[in-house]
Design a binder for these strands. Structure first.
Lengths: 122, 122
DNA sequence: CCGAATCCGTGACGATACTG
DNA sequence: CAGTATCGTCACGGATTCGG
């Protein structure tokens, strides 16, 4: 009763795959992880996610806003201020994405070893 | 001694980001989720992950093998048989990626609503 | 000054044909 | 059956410029 069990990301036409495509993305992961700490303005977000370009950050935030994961607040000041925060829905995504970035950090040593071994042979 | 706490995906030069870029990917997520059920051969994997092309599946598996997440077994038969399975390291990744695809399936209704609302305004 | 739009190159992705 | 090779397309992503 709580929901349909029919959604399946493995089915190419299932809408859930479009959502997976959005959230299974490195920039999305980093932005959501950073926003998990609290509300941030555009510039601070850009500083926190090192190396992200302005365009990509804008697009990522737009898409997250469209999917209902991020709320955007514009303050008509001078200089302008725009703040972003996770919605209730977005906060439910924070845990799995944090787990994913944590995994990358915790296992990178093993991954690097595996890469060396792979590149060494043949 | 257990490990360095210095790894940080938010730092652009940190190697852990290269690992995040690989695992925070829709094809990786689907392949790892499917392989979580057990060993599969190439053709079955291709059938299970609907819509993936042979080229992309090959590339995804190669990269996962290089990072030590997937093991590849070739049997010199006729016709040839190649099987793939998650390594011990790969199995530790299965849980977070399954959680992510589950999230996509469980929250797609809310996401679709949010998209409609977003596209309706303006 | 900060946030967003424009231009353009690169890389991902898919389709097809071919080999061991 | 399991790839590899080649090509064409297109979205992602970076540098730059614009606007408020």
């Amino acid at each position: 009763m709580p929901q349909q069990p029919d959604w399946n990301v493995l089915v190419s036409t299932c809408p859930s795959r479009t959502s997976l495509a959005r959230i299974a993305n490195k920039w999305t992961a980093m932005v959501v992880v950073v926003l998990g700490r609290g509300t941030l303005r555009f510039g601070d977000l850009r500083t926190a996610v090192e190396g992200i370009s302005g365009k990509v950050l804008t697009e990522t935030l737009r898409d997250l806003e469209r999917d209902g994961l991020v709320a955007r607040h514009v303050y008509a000041e001078m200089p302008p201020r725009v703040e972003y925060e996770l919605t209730t829905l977005g906060r439910t995504l924070h845990t799995p994405l944090l787990a994913l970035s944590r995994w990358a950090e915790e296992h990178i040593a093993e991954v690097l070893e595996a890469r060396d071994a792979y590149d060494a042979r043949d």
